[in-house]
Design a protein around this nucleic acid. Structure first.
Lengths: 221, 221
DNA sequence: AATTTTTTTTAGATTTGTCTAAAAAATATT
DNA sequence: AATATTTTTTAGACAAATCTAAAAAAAATT
């Protein structure tokens, strides 16, 4: 009674889950952009997922996961984030190198494997990017995190999450020596370009562009 | 430049490798039996593997892997056996429960993952069934093991390998309290049914049928 | 409100891996 | 050596997941 879903189906379910987090529903074009497939291919899969009762979908309407679909999505996300944690914690991967590998490992469905891995890792609550890991029942912690652009001046905070996994972003962060857990303070905000000056540890202040600040989430400490 | 081969192709390559260990080559029927597919499906894949230069194959002839094909097979086997070791050693799986899960994990191709896993496990030389694990160059240790039927009387030996992974076999072994590493001595051989009486540790001697003895391999200590 | 544009779906084709049924080749038997 | 049997391959079909091109529906614009 393991997974029952193909890797492709799992990838659709996961993508729909993530996209519907924003507005509660998803459109065909959004999903096709997210998966790098054509809208026609998406339509085919939507019909399939509807038949399997994982998706609320009517032609030409927006769609969203059923309770069952959400449950499955959370399980896939659980697997993905547990593996990311494992790769960083045990195998000494950099936290910016784990995403692709976890994309593959997440499709190994054995419940026994996942639960034993969870236990071996001591039931971690957050993955290396600061995203919460669903527990065996699909529940996950919520962080009271704010976007770096909303952090008040001179308030010490810790980076908890990075809102994208692109290599370009991770390269930039690594250059600026910012990672999950980094403690920082916003020293100045520039209204001209909405960039912020941030002090990391005792180093010289660095400037963070609006684009970058928008994907950095922090938790006041 | 990772794996480049589909899961199906990898399964064919692995099965051919194992089958050709016996006689140096494989027939279509043997392979179809081993993979639980029809001979016609096998023929299709053979042509594909030949095009990819992984297989020496001419219609109606026996076939065998090229050097390149063997290299790929060894890499798949490396992944499989490393994961089996991980599951038993780190996740506390029973050695008789790991095969199916490893069948899935073995298809995650990332070289970095596999090499880091190898290092994390401290470069194990044998998997939990006693099978040698190919190293990063495809080399593996050879055990000077003999079949239990060939072990001389009263010679202390250690179980190194079990020549099958069937649940039925593993259940029987577990009942007789025999596992990889178990030390035993053959006390008597019965010519009538070719069964042997074996003393395990200080327990009362147990009788092992010819069929069972044939799949048990031991190394004199 | 009518028209244009965008979005989504349908129709039909392609690739991968599978199948069945029939043909061809190799092997075994008489 | 001729015939029968077994093995293997070919031919054609099917399911999953994709695509392109065209049609239909919805949304935006005039």
């Amino acid at each position: 009674m393991s997974s029952n879903f193909s890797i492709t189906e799992e990838n659709y379910i996961k993508a729909i889950y993530h996209l519907q987090q924003a507005t509660g529903s998803v459109t065909t074009n959004e999903l096709s952009a997210s998966l790098l497939t054509k809208p026609a291919s998406v339509t085919d899969m939507l019909k399939k997922l509807k038949v399997k009762k994982l998706l609320h979908y009517e032609p030409y309407k927006v769609f969203y996961l059923t309770a069952e679909g959400k449950k499955i999505a959370l399980n896939i996300i659980r697997r993905h984030r547990l593996w990311e944690f494992f790769l960083v914690e045990k195998l000494a991967f950099g936290w910016d190198e784990v995403h692709e590998v976890a994309e593959e490992l997440e499709h190994v469905g054995s419940k026994k494997l996942v639960d034993k891995l969870d236990s071996y890792l001591d039931f971690p609550k957050f993955d290396p990017h600061g995203d919460p890991i669903p527990d065996v029942n699909g529940k996950m912690s919520i962080v009271q995190q704010v976007n770096l652009t909303e952090l008040p001046l001179n308030k010490l905070a810790q980076v908890t999450m990075v809102g994208s996994q692109s290599t370009e972003l991770l390269e930039l962060l690594s250059h600026k020596d910012i990672t999950i857990g980094t403690k920082l303070e916003v020293k100045k905000k520039f209204s001209f370009d909405k960039s912020v000056e941030v002090k990391v540890k005792n180093l010289a202040p660095v400037n963070i562009s609006e684009q970058l600040a928008k994907v950095l989430f922090v938790k006041p400490v």
